[in-house]
């Protein structure tokens, strides 16, 4: 199998690191070589955050370059648009329909781009998810990340049971029920 490249993007604090951890652990239990790259520190404070997950027979670079991502999993609309140049031709975007205004928009220095959903759809196979509603349905607004993992899971060749097992191993027990429910809601959406 060729190396598969998945890029997870969002806003610091949205839980992208947990998502990449679940994805990373799911692919190793399938016996793949895997590299996950994330950036800690300053950008975690409400800035744009990017995590790369690459898996296959043998992975060299942990980083995905422009034109290299098979799947972009975006936690926020503007971040999906920012990541679009990283998508491979024929790649897929899964995007949460949430809009979080960055500071330059809040202070009126620029405007939040209009109609991002259509811009994405013009350029790529795009699935828009209302993850916040599904997360609330699962019982916790913060489970947005696991809802999105659920949607993405359906687009990989990793079996459903492996995902469930991985989430059980990765998430603290206290939040397990909510997260498993969130995953299912995403998976079946």
């Amino acid at each position: 199998m060729d190396t598969k490249s998945i890029m997870i993007v969002g806003v610091g604090g949205q839980g992208t690191l947990l998502a990449s951890r679940i994805l990373g652990n799911a692919v190793i239990s399938e016996g793949y070589d895997v590299k996950v790259s994330e950036v800690h520190g300053m950008s975690q404070r409400g800035g744009s955050v990017v995590t790369y997950v690459r898996y296959g027979k043998k992975v060299n670079s942990p980083i995905i370059d422009k034109g290299g991502a098979d799947i972009i999993l975006a936690f926020e609309l503007l971040e999906a648009l920012r990541a679009l140049p990283f998508l491979k031709k024929g790649g897929k975007i899964i995007v949460n329909d949430q809009q979080i205004d960055p500071m330059p928009v809040i202070i009126g220095a620029c405007e939040y781009p209009q109609d991002i959903e259509n811009k994405l759809k013009e350029n790529a196979d795009t699935t828009v998810v209302n993850a916040l509603t599904l997360a609330k349905q699962a019982g916790n607004m913060k489970a947005v990340n696991v809802v999105l993992i659920g949607v993405m899971a359906k687009n990989t060749d990793i079996p459903y049971e492996v995902w469930k097992e991985t989430i059980t191993k990765t998430v603290p027990e206290k939040f397990l029920e909510v997260n498993l429910k969130a995953f299912d809601l995403g998976y079946n959406s």
């Binding site: 409400g46 920012r82 500071m103």
Partner: peptide
């Protein structure tokens, strides 16, 4: 050179105090 969708100017998202 790798083919990719051209990036357009969009608002930056610098880190902020929480």
């Amino acid at each position: 050179e790798e083919a990719s969708v051209a990036s357009e100017p969009i608002p930056v998202r610098p880190p902020v105090m929480c």
